[in-house]
Amino acid sequence: MSSTTYIVGAGGQLGKALRASDKAPARLHGLTSADIDIVDATSVADALAGLGPGDVVLNCAAYTDVDGAQTDSGRAFAVNRDGPGHLARMSATTGARLIHVSTDYVFAGAAATDEGPRRSTPYEPGDVTGEPETVYGASKLAGERAVFEIDPRATVVRTAWVYTGGPASTDFVGTMRRLEAVRRDVTVVDDQTGSPTYAPDLADGLWELVAADPDGSTAGAVLHATNAGSVSWYQVARAVFEEVGADPERVRPCSTDEFPRPAPRPAYSVLSGASWASAGLTPLRDWRAALHAAVAGRRAGRG
Rank of each mutant, 00 (worst) to 15 (best):
V270K: 13
V231P: 12
E242M: 06
P117V: 05
V231D: 10
G137K: 08
F148N: 10
A274G: 04
V240W: 04
R184V: 15
L291I: 02
Y123I: 03
D190W: 04
D40T: 07
G50P: 02
Y163A: 03
G15A: 02
N80I: 12
P214C: 04
V240I: 10
A293W: 05
R153W: 15
T71K: 11
A92Q: 05
N59A: 11
S2D: 11
A181C: 04
V244P: 07
S91V: 05
F241H: 08
P196Q: 03
D286T: 02
A88W: 03
I99T: 06
D171I: 05
S275I: 13
V8M: 00
L14I: 02
V188H: 07
A293Y: 04
A49Y: 02
F172Y: 08
G165W: 10
L284P: 14
R145N: 09
V188W: 04
A290I: 07
V128F: 15
H292R: 07
R145F: 15
R145Q: 13
F172M: 14
V79I: 12
S139Y: 14
L291H: 05
A142P: 08
V173P: 06
F77S: 02
A45T: 00
D40A: 07
R238Q: 15
V66G: 02
G297C: 06
T94A: 13
T197R: 01
T64K: 13
A41L: 06
S120Y: 11
G11E: 00
R153D: 11
D82Q: 10
V57E: 01
R184A: 11
A237M: 06
V39D: 08
D37V: 13
T121E: 12
A78V: 10
E115N: 13
G95I: 06
V147Q: 00
T159E: 14
R158T: 11
G143D: 07
D22A: 05
A211Q: 14
S195M: 14
S230E: 10
T175M: 11
D72T: 13
L202F: 01
D114Q: 02
A110S: 05
V44L: 01
V101G: 05
P84Y: 15
A237N: 04
L28M: 06
D247A: 05
R118T: 09
E149K: 12
V135K: 11
A237T: 02
R158G: 08
R118F: 14
A24M: 03
R238N: 06
G301H: 12
V182F: 09
P25R: 02
G301V: 12
R302T: 01
V106T: 07
S91H: 01
S73Q: 07
T121F: 09
P132I: 03
L223N: 10
G273L: 02
V188C: 09
L271M: 15
G143Q: 09
G11T: 00
G205V: 03
A289D: 09
G30C: 02
D185C: 09
A142R: 08
I38V: 08
R265M: 06
T121K: 13
N227F: 00
A96R: 03
D191L: 12
V162Y: 15
R89C: 13
Y198N: 11
I36F: 05
V39C: 15
L31D: 00
A112P: 00
K16I: 01
V222D: 15
A237H: 01
T159K: 03
G52D: 09
D22R: 12
R238V: 01
L51W: 09
A20E: 01
E124K: 04
A277R: 15
T103Y: 13
V57N: 02
S275R: 12
T42W: 14
